[in-house]
Design a protein around this nucleic acid. Sequence first.
DNA 1: CTGAAAGCGCTTACAG
DNA 2: CTGAAAGCGCTTACAG
Lengths: 333, 333
Amino acid sequence: MTARDVAARAGVSVTTVSRVLNDKAVDLTPATCERVRVAARELGYQVHPAASALRRGRTGTLGLVVPDIGDQYFHRIARGVEDAIRPQGFGIVFCDTDRDASLEDEAVDMLLSKGVDGIVLCGGGLDDDRHLRSRRWHNTPVVTIGPHRLDFPAISADDVGAVAALVRHLHEGGRRRILCVAGQPTWLVTKQRLVGYHTAVEELGLDDDPKLVVHAGFTAEAGEHAVRQARERGIDFDAVVAFDDYAALGALHALQALGIAVPEDVAVAGCDDIDFARFARVPLTSVRFPTYEMGRAAARLLAPPPGEREEVVAAFGFELHVRESSAPAGRRG
Amino acid sequence: MTARDVAARAGVSVTTVSRVLNDKAVDLTPATCERVRVAARELGYQVHPAASALRRGRTGTLGLVVPDIGDQYFHRIARGVEDAIRPQGFGIVFCDTDRDASLEDEAVDMLLSKGVDGIVLCGGGLDDDRHLRSRRWHNTPVVTIGPHRLDFPAISADDVGAVAALVRHLHEGGRRRILCVAGQPTWLVTKQRLVGYHTAVEELGLDDDPKLVVHAGFTAEAGEHAVRQARERGIDFDAVVAFDDYAALGALHALQALGIAVPEDVAVAGCDDIDFARFARVPLTSVRFPTYEMGRAAARLLAPPPGEREEVVAAFGFELHVRESSAPAGRRG
DNA sequence: CTGAAAGCGCTTACAG
DNA sequence: CTGAAAGCGCTTACAG
């Protein structure tokens, strides 16, 4: 079923078929347009995607690279991207990297091999992005979300401010020794959030014991392990700030398993405000980034909606959600 | 940068370039192959995706339609699909439908307009799939996951058996009146799981009061609302089985807010065993489907790995994960 | 107001 | 062992 068939049925040329179906029928007779449309409908004609892409030089797809689509931080971004480009008929080709630099590189290879018209690159920031900085992009436009060392338009969140706000909040609740369950040291997001931690700790004159910073992955298991290990090493702390809610939940779990009361003995706070935060054994204090909007903004940078020439917001703030897990020391709720 | 450029640099024809780069160099001189590869590498040549797709008649992408990529049930499937096709260089174009029939229809339109080589269709089963049954698929192969009324190869889970197992488990704990927080009545997954509920209820001689079945969405808010409404209507129950863990968490939350002890007064169980189940305020009993493997199987049906001619498993079982929320009546843990 | 023709960049059947 | 040529199905500049 090709444009030729439609043309034959409508008694016109393929040129006309193409023009009608692409809304380039500037001065075609309404009757002609109608005949073409009817013929196309009757035959169930569909433009051949590859032929159209070859001719126009674009595929109408955007690539999305995320560490883990199962992480709420990222699937909220995915939803933002999707909703922003759906009206324009774009498709999203997505890829998980598991925060592995070589998988990330392969993900980009794959996207380029499919000819996506742009890439939304999230949550990389691995190993100083060395693999990404030295690679070819074949002129494909890229927008990054989150901390990066790449020369592309970037959508950023206030990672520094968010963690600093959590530390200040814990301090207001009377906490002095805040265990920092950070991400892996090679991740830029870890470096950013650590800046926030140290800034606030210094500003408030809190204990800045290097032992209070432990590195973990962004999973519940990693959070559990980090807290258990800190206890085994005899590190004393009255609060935990985790750079990820999954890790924070794991920390919460480990503390309770060790017979330590949250929030009475130790307060806990996380980052990213996953939906579960309020259903946790002790509802979890967290900081929320507007990830949905960030995804939307990234997509609009790559595929601006027709007509609209609005300024796209590139820097986003955060919201502190205070819940029971960080109630003042010795008290509950 | 085209095959012509590579050909010129290597001093061969584009035919040869194509053959070398597509491993069809059956009887080409090793030296020729090498010259072509070197030239391609030096020029950073990449096969033009659209041109290749147009000629070969396939794009190397698979479509994935899910109700909600943020739901663990579905992102586990997505991971399974991704891992199964990654080695073959396929890409996934994904789409959320929010369980809306017209969005689902549009999602399929979009995928077809991108020329995907196959579609993994998950969790539709909306309104008897009327919209999907009457639409054109343009010969695109489809594999469904979950209950459907479509004539496509299907990967299915034992929804009936899983819910029946939950009911039996609750019964063993001494429960007699089990509130069923089902999904929307028009969803096939609801109908299937209700079969499991009713089968077990009858088999065990439990109360089969129609008022015990309430319909809700698969969200925490819907689960909360369902339980509150059941209480307001004076419906008596000593257990809740929800067809979704998010709804089960909402139910748990509502019960505790109403001062009803879980599991002492009312047991709670859900479906799908989201990772968070064990971190819930009361760790949640649930039933787990092998969604990752189901996604893998669906993908292998559409894009079988080269060589392997294995039989793909199409029907999957489940695992009951018993936790504190369903401990026997009057007891804890 | 409409059409014939060129050409996007590949892959492959055919020829030698 | 290698190449010239056809053709995949569009879109668009050009012509009338």
